[in-house]
Each structure stands twice: as structure tokens, then as C-alpha cells.
């Protein structure tokens, strides 16, 4: 009994001590763990190379027992020759990471928080109207709750159209289902542009296009795929090939706001502009973190448009695909039913 107690005590003390030894050496020491090598390698070439491991992942002095447990388990697995897949952040860690992102990227975080992409698990998975009429399936997790462990049945139950529905893990209720790491990867090859002051002067599309961390978290492979490897689809409108903006960042948007396989504009969840706004990038109107477009018309249009209308008060309804005012595909002919006047 006493011996057993001693063993437990030693164990309890040893695991954090081991973690401390392991981590106090900084990134080099982290790389001592062979399984961790690739992550350290990616990080060392990334925009976050100046941010040390502990700043995001916490250090050995944490009281979080899971950290020590995971470390101990990995050593044990290594010992037994049953080494797991590459280490990656779990669902909980991805959510915890968000406050660390906020620590440096305050403004972006606040913008995201105010926009629709900050929707919680509760909002997305317990939507009565949706669940009564649509099938709950694993593909939902491609965009919503992509970091969730397990299958759709491990997130929401029951999987029918009768309900009542509940979250299988109540702790997810208030958590964001589209976290930072849905569209950003911290360990990603590529250099930061430079000093903050310089960045401020170069703000704009150019800068963002070259952000190395932009990408889409592919739930299938449990890894972020950088934006440069994603494709903006060649969209069509009833057989006519649409002019598409060259903005590569849109490729990330298209992963979720995606057309059906036939690539017809407006099909599925697609909102490719095809009327007077054809050729505009998603991000020309949508602020990338807040997602909203309010007041963005004024960025391009004079307050009174050529038609003599106030663009700020125009009905630009976008939720209704059939609306003639839908800003994504409003065409000249929608207003000029008797023929579009010639340019003066």
C-alpha cells in the first residue's frame, strides 16, 4: 500500500518534472522528440518563428494534467514501439489557442467575434428549423466544427429530423464552431513581411495575398492546406464562363461557400457575383474577419449612384436567391426591364 502510494507520488512528481526538462530547452528540446520534428521544422520557417513554443502551447509549469498525461503517454508509446500518428492539436487545444491568437491579433479577433463566423456550436447544431428539414451528416463538419473529435453523432444527437436535439458534449455549447485555425495555420512555411510599421504602410490586398498562414483546415487530413494549393473554381452561368477575380484568398472562401459539382454560379452555397458585380473578389466587399459588408458599397460607389439611388439604403437582399435585388447577381436588366440605356 505504502509502496503503491510512493509509486503514485513519484509518478505524479516525475511527469511534470520530465515535461519541465523537456520544454525548458526551448524549440530545440521540443525537437528532441522525434515525432515532433516535423512540427518544429515547419514552425522554424514560419511567420511565427519569433514566437517560442511555450507562448502558445504553455510550458511545463502548467497545472493542466492532460498536458503531462499526453507527454507521458507519448513516451510510453515510444517505449513500446507503438508510435502514433504525427502530433496535432486536439479539439480542446484549438479552442484554447484562440485566446493566444487574440493576445497579439486583437483587432482581427474582435472583428471576427462581431461577425457571423463566430457562430457557436449551439447556434449551428441546435438550429430547430435546419434540423427539422435537413439531414445531419458528417459533411456538416467539413465547415462547422471541423476540429470536433469523432463523427457528427459525437457532436449532436439524435441524428433525425424529429429532435429534440442536444449537444453530446455540453461544454461545446458556447464554443466557436469556426475557430481561427479553420482559416489560419500557425506553423506554415513563409516569411512575415517585416516590421509592424512597414506592414501598416503596405496594408491591402497585396499583403494579405502573401500571408503564408492563410489556408483551409481540411478535416479529412486533419491539417491546414495553404491557400496557394486551393483553387478558385472556374464558375459558369448557364454555360457562360464567368470572369473571376485573380484574388487567391477567395479559394479559402470557396471551400465552404461552394457551388455544386457543375460549378453553376448560385448553386449550392455559392454566391459568385455574376451581374453588374461580376469579377469582384469576395474580399472586395466582405471584410475578411468580420465577414460583413455594411457600408462597403460606398467604397466603390459615389453616395448617389449613376441611377440617382442611395446605395446605402438600397435593398441588397442576399439571402434570397430569387430576389432581383440580390447583390451577388443583380444585373442591369433587373432594373432596366425595357432595355439597358447606352452609356453616355
Amino acid at each position: 500500500m505504502v509502496v503503491a502510494g510512493l509509486v503514485v507520488l513519484v509518478g505524479v512528481l516525475l511527469a511534470p518534472a520530465g515535461s519541465l526538462l523537456y520544454e525548458s530547452g526551448g524549440p530545440e528540446a521540443c525537437a528532441n522528440c522525434h515525432e515532433m520534428g516535423r512540427q518544429v521544422e515547419l514552425w522554424s520557417g514560419s511567420a511565427h518563428q519569433e514566437v517560442k513554443c511555450g507562448a502558445c502551447h504553455g510550458d511545463a509549469l502548467t497545472m493542466d494534467a492532460r498536458v503531462h498525461w499526453t507527454n507521458a503517454r507519448r513516451v510510453a508509446e515510444h517505449w513500446m514501439g507503438r508510435i502514433g500518428e504525427e502530433p496535432r492539436l486536439g479539439e480542446g487545444q484549438v479552442l484554447e489557442m484562440m485566446s493566444r491568437c487574440e493576445g497579439c491579433h486583437e483587432q482581427e479577433f474582435a472583428a471576427w467575434q462581431a461577425g457571423p463566423h463566430a457562430a457557436t456550436y449551439e447556434r449551428l447544431f441546435l438550429d430547430e428549423k435546419h434540423n427539422h428539414t435537413r439531414h445531419l451528416m458528417n459533411d456538416c463538419l467539413r465547415c462547422h466544427g471541423a476540429h470536433a473529435e469523432g463523427a457528427i453523432g459525437d457532436v449532436v444527437a439524435p441524428l433525425d429530423t424529429k429532435g429534440p436535439w442536444r449537444l453530446v458534449r455540453e461544454e461545446l455549447r458556447g464554443q466557436p464552431a469556426i475557430p481561427c485555425m479553420q482559416c489560419h495555420a500557425v506553423h506554415r512555411e513563409g516569411q512575415v513581411l517585416g516590421r509592424k510599421r512597414l506592414e501598416a504602410k503596405m496594408a491591402g490586398r497585396q499583403q494579405e495575398t502573401h500571408r503564408p498562414g492563410l489556408g483551409f483546415y481540411d478535416r479529412r487530413s486533419r491539417a491546414g492546406v495553404r491557400a496557394g494549393l486551393l483553387r478558385v473554381p472556374k464558375m459558369e452561368d448557364n454555360g457562360r464562363v464567368l470572369r473571376m477575380s485573380a484574388d487567391g484568398r477567395q479559394a479559402v472562401c470557396y471551400q465552404c461557400h461552394a457551388p455544386l459539382a457543375g460549378r453553376q454560379a448560385g448553386s449550392g452555397d455559392d454566391r459568385t457575383p455574376k451581374g453588374v458585380h461580376e469579377g469582384l473578389s469576395c474580399l472586395a466587399c466582405h471584410e475578411q474577419h468580420r465577414g460583413t459588408t455594411r457600408a462597403s458599397c460606398a467604397t466603390c460607389h459615389p453616395r448617389l449612384s449613376n441611377c440617382g439611388r442611395d446605395v446605402e439604403t438600397m435593398d441588397t437582399t442576399f439571402a434570397n436567391a430569387k430576389s432581383g435585388h440580390n447583390v451577388h447577381w443583380v444585373a442591369c436588366a433587373d432594373c432596366h426591364a425595357k432595355g439597358v440605356p447606352r452609356r453616355r
Binding site: 428539414t133 492546406v225 461552394a258
Partner: peptide
């Protein structure tokens, strides 16, 4: 690494695929 062979073969690492918004009705 970086889907290098898939890019070589002309295969998008992640295909863009949306879903029909039609209601699937009752189970």
C-alpha cells in the same frame, strides 16, 4: 509534401464541392 505529386498530376488537393440546399424531408 505540400501535395506535390497531386499538383504535378493536376489534381486539386481539396475539391470545391457544395451541397444542394433542398430540404431532404422527414426521416
Amino acid at each position: 509534401r505540400d501535395y506535390v505529386s497531386w499538383v504535378l498530376l493536376g489534381v486539386a488537393p481539396v475539391p470545391v464541392r457544395g451541397r444542394e440546399q433542398a430540404e431532404t424531408g422527414k426521416n
